[in-house]
Write a protein that binds this DNA or RNA. Sequence first.
DNA 1: TTTATTCTTGACGAACCGTCATTTTTTGAC
DNA 2: GTCAAAAAATGACGGTTCGTCAAGAATAAA
Lengths: 245, 245
Amino acid sequence: MAPTSARKQREIQDREALILQVARGMLLERGYLGLTMDRIAAATEYSKGTIYQHFANKEDLLAALAADTMAARVSMFQRGAAIDGRPREKFFAIGLAEELFVRLNPEHFRSQQILCSVSFREKAQECHLAPLEGQNQICLGVSEALIRDAVACGDLFLPEDMEAADLAIQLYALYTGTFTIVEAHNLPEHEGFQRAPRFLHRGAHRLLDGYGWKPLSQVWDYQATAKRVYREAFPKEARLLGLLA
Amino acid sequence: MAPTSARKQREIQDREALILQVARGMLLERGYLGLTMDRIAAATEYSKGTIYQHFANKEDLLAALAADTMAARVSMFQRGAAIDGRPREKFFAIGLAEELFVRLNPEHFRSQQILCSVSFREKAQECHLAPLEGQNQICLGVSEALIRDAVACGDLFLPEDMEAADLAIQLYALYTGTFTIVEAHNLPEHEGFQRAPRFLHRGAHRLLDGYGWKPLSQVWDYQATAKRVYREAFPKEARLLGLLA
DNA sequence: TTTATTCTTGACGAACCGTCATTTTTTGAC
DNA sequence: GTCAAAAAATGACGGTTCGTCAAGAATAAA
């Protein structure tokens, strides 16, 4: 097995990036059922065999697609957690990060969601699932660390039987659930569903208020925090979405 | 077009029920990708053409499957809301109903989840999607009514810009998100995910506490309410799950 | 019993998946 | 520059599933 040259290596990486990019567009425009390996081959102008050199099957490609964008998500989580302020402000920043991320990478959520079904996920290869899962753990880890910070500094008292992870997952569930609902009911008729994203952060705030995580949302001006977070942590992203001049 | 006799009519209905039952089992055992029309035809001992007489395609069958179990879900919602007590107790009862329902009908959640992806849902027929959506609206309607009751009797003050529907959807999102996460990460390794269901109701409680919905979870013995709800509203279901002697 | 109507069937074409024998390209030694 | 060996790319192909429909079976009506 002769070592592939560095140049070749790079070409292969570039090609993989191209395939992913094309697949991304296809997933967005035509959905999972409209995403076919033949179409990807045609669109990238490579043969099907070459596509399969990179990905074991369609579901594996999907996992790779999600894993690929995951890096951006982790980055945004970390930037959110890195802003100055009280732990709860940082935690809020993570929520904002999540929202921005999903709005900027709608196809990530789609692939992620399909991979939630066991039947699909079990066809993907470990080498693509593992990083996906690993980076997801990093995101949760960032959340948990903040929760522990809050407990440490007396801003939050967790119930005795609860771990930081348990609270982190509740927030994760609230966000995931909201995005799922919006995706599923993107019909103009459903006002309640349409309005869901607008109240997403409020729901999270009230949940944290319920745990008594200080400063409570009624006391603190989190609107101001949001503006600061956009400016300091996500200037590019917020500008892209028109949330920042 | 001669009218099919009443007997024939009944036979057709029975057959549809049989198909759904077989499909249900298949979805549970082999997942979405293992559920094929040919296999259903073989298992029901009808021809494929006959299966297609009932359902336009695979996704349509999935929608019908979800719509079918939906009746049970609505019933449980209504029974939950019908127990005696304060609005928040009733609302809690709905949460319990949802949990029981999902545990008793795991395949309902699977089909529902796949139908969350536009690409799949758009292949299903309106005649199966509409009832599904309609009954979902009924469930949400029950929740909203309770929220309005709570506002009316002074137990809850909703923020001015929020409607009852907005709060109902937040809870819906929290529950949906939790079930999704559990389904997606059903690996023994993830303790946090494993523990998620245990803390699901607590998350909901704290969220409602955050809105100041009285009686707060710290003040009221909702554990007792749960027992009462199991006994009064869901004796059969709770017993099946070993939650009641 | 015969005819008309409805229902059922499974063979069939189409789409897509994933493979692999063949061809093309690259590599490195002379 | 030439050539043989290794690596990579290709697309035709077999297999599976989907969804259809012409033909046949069952039922109802005459």
